[in-house]
Amino acid sequence: MQIDHVSGQPYYAQLVEGVKQDVEHGILQVDDQLPSVREMARQHLLNPNTVSKAYKQLEAQQVIRTVPGKGTYVNAFNPTSVRTELQKRLQQIVSQAQQAGISFNEMRGWLDQMEGTTL
């Protein structure tokens, strides 16, 4: 996982996405231990508060869990929470599209074009 220090995206958001992608791609496995907040901050040249914020978001999304006194671990894949998260993100995209004047029919056309292709 890399943090782009020149990107406009907040560091904590990059860290959240990076951990989620590492889980999705099998780089991080269920029950793998993540570095401590301080160690992750040191590895990526970040403020520990930034890493803590990312870990809190990942916990809220049930991607990771913290065991007091033991560490932070990758959770088992939970299809329900993934489905819920994707539904929220899709709702945000639809809202943005509507604000930009894009119709549902146009979005359906995009989905039809994507069906069967790998992104």
Rank of each mutant, 00 (worst) to 15 (best):
L15H: 02
I102E: 03
Q99H: 07
Q98N: 15
V82T: 07
E59C: 02
L46G: 00
Q61C: 12
F104L: 14
Q91S: 12
V19W: 02
K70P: 06
A13P: 03
V74F: 01
N78E: 15
V16H: 00
A60P: 02
L45N: 15
T117P: 03
I102H: 04
A54L: 04
R89M: 11
D4L: 09
T72W: 11
V16W: 00
K70M: 10
L111Y: 08
Q87A: 14
Q29Y: 05
V16G: 00
I102D: 06
E39M: 11
A76I: 13
E17A: 13
V23T: 09
E106Q: 09
E24H: 14
K70E: 12
E39G: 09
L90T: 12
G8Y: 01
E115W: 10
G116H: 01
P35R: 03
F104Q: 15
T80L: 11
M107T: 06
V94T: 13
Q9Y: 01
M107W: 09
M114L: 12
D4P: 08
Q29M: 13
G109I: 11
L86H: 08
E85W: 08
K56S: 11
E115H: 14
G26M: 15
V94H: 10
Y11G: 00
L119S: 10
L28A: 04
E85T: 07
Q2C: 08
I27N: 03
Q43W: 08
G69I: 01
I3H: 00
N78T: 09
A13V: 11
A76E: 15
Q57H: 06
I64V: 05
G71Y: 00
A41E: 07
V94L: 07
Q96N: 12
M1G: 08
Q61F: 15
A97L: 13
S36Q: 11
Y55M: 01
T50C: 03
Q91P: 02
N105D: 15
V74R: 05
V19K: 01
A13N: 06
H5Q: 03
K88Y: 15
R38M: 11
N78L: 12
V67W: 02
G101D: 10
Q91F: 06
I3A: 00
L111Q: 06
I64C: 00
R83E: 14
R38H: 13
T84P: 12
T50L: 03
S81K: 14
Q87S: 13
A97V: 03
Q113R: 14
Q96L: 08
L45K: 10
N105F: 13
A60V: 12
V94R: 11
S103L: 02
F77C: 12
A60N: 14
I27V: 13
R89N: 09
